[in-house]
Simulated scan of single mutants.
Amino acid sequence: MVPRPRYSLLGLLALLAVPVQAAPLAPRAPIQSPQPAPTFIPAGARGSLVVLTPQGPPLTAQENQTVSIPVAGKVDAIEFPQGTILTGQFRRGVEGQGTFTFETLLLNNKVYRINANSDPLPTSFQSASREFLGAPITERREYQRGNATSEYSGAGGSLLGLLPGFGPAAVAVGAVGSIVGTTQRTQAVDKGTGRQEAALDGVLSSVLVTQVASLQTLSVYFLEEVNLENPLATLNQSQK
């Protein structure tokens, strides 16, 4: 029979008192401080922005026409969130292409003056409507006729001087001259306007246009630095 080992009370207490080594703690990751927000768009920055015009027919921009294009995306390190708007004009380029020249930027409810261009876009020619081209001509005729009506009314009142008791006859002579001059000017305007409208019926000019569709990518290049801490204006809720 194998004798069992005998432990004294002091021996057992000594065994229990042996310290247990704890597992080493994993090193903590260093706490990174938040990066400061960029304060400018550098000259030479380029970004591909998504056009956010409403779904439907594409936006048509005519040569030298001012347009506002809602976009979103990123330029350099600057986020362009939804609600960003680029405003500028469409300019004729070379080899049947054109570019947008942007002059203002609405970013995070702040308006900035910028100098930026889009990459070249395809163009086409669109016939201008007779109503569009003829509007200034018709407006000129109506303006002259309105002036003539006022001058006739004033001259007619002056002609009361011809009647006894209504003032000197010299006033009436001037009134007659005013009526004659007004009639001659109106006839000249009508004659010139008629020739211009006849020319419109024969030949209609065409204008250079481009189209920008919803969700289309628009590449934009900034020619000058934009200081984001110096906006032209800040919009409030009612101005959005």
Rank of each mutant, 00 (worst) to 15 (best):
P3S: 00
P5G: 01
S8E: 01
L10K: 07
L10I: 06
G11I: 09
L13N: 02
A14S: 14
A14F: 08
V20F: 08
A23L: 02
A23E: 09
P24K: 03
A29R: 10
Q32R: 13
Q32A: 10
S33F: 15
Q35D: 15
Q35P: 03
F40V: 03
I41N: 10
I41H: 11
P42Q: 13
R46M: 10
G47A: 02
P54F: 00
P54G: 02
Q55A: 15
G56V: 03
P57H: 14
L59K: 08
N64K: 08
N64A: 04
I69H: 11
V71P: 04
A72E: 10
A77C: 03
F80T: 04
Q82P: 02
Q82R: 10
G83M: 11
I85G: 11
F90Y: 04
R91A: 07
E95Y: 07
E95M: 07
E95F: 11
G96Y: 07
Q97E: 13
G98D: 14
T101M: 01
F102D: 10
L105W: 13
N108T: 08
N109M: 07
N109A: 11
R113Y: 00
I114F: 03
A116K: 14
A116D: 06
N117S: 12
N117D: 07
P122N: 09
S124N: 03
Q126C: 05
Q126V: 01
A128I: 10
S129T: 05
F132W: 12
F132S: 10
L133I: 15
G134Q: 00
A135S: 04
P136Y: 07
P136I: 02
I137Q: 08
T138A: 02
E139Y: 11
R140N: 15
R140Y: 13
R140P: 01
T149M: 00
S150T: 10
Y152H: 05
G157F: 00
S158F: 02
L162C: 06
L163Y: 11
P164T: 03
F166Y: 14
P168Q: 02
P168A: 13
A170Q: 02
V173C: 05
V176N: 04
S178Q: 14
V180S: 09
G181Y: 14
T182D: 01
T182V: 09
T183G: 11
R185C: 00
Q187L: 14
A188I: 02
V189T: 10
R195A: 11
A198H: 06
G202A: 12
V203Q: 14
L204I: 08
S206E: 12
V209M: 08
V209L: 12
Q211F: 00
S214V: 03
L215E: 15
T217H: 08
T217W: 02
V220K: 04
V220A: 08
L223M: 00
N227K: 04
L228Q: 08
E229F: 01
N230Q: 12
L232I: 03
T234E: 15
N236C: 09
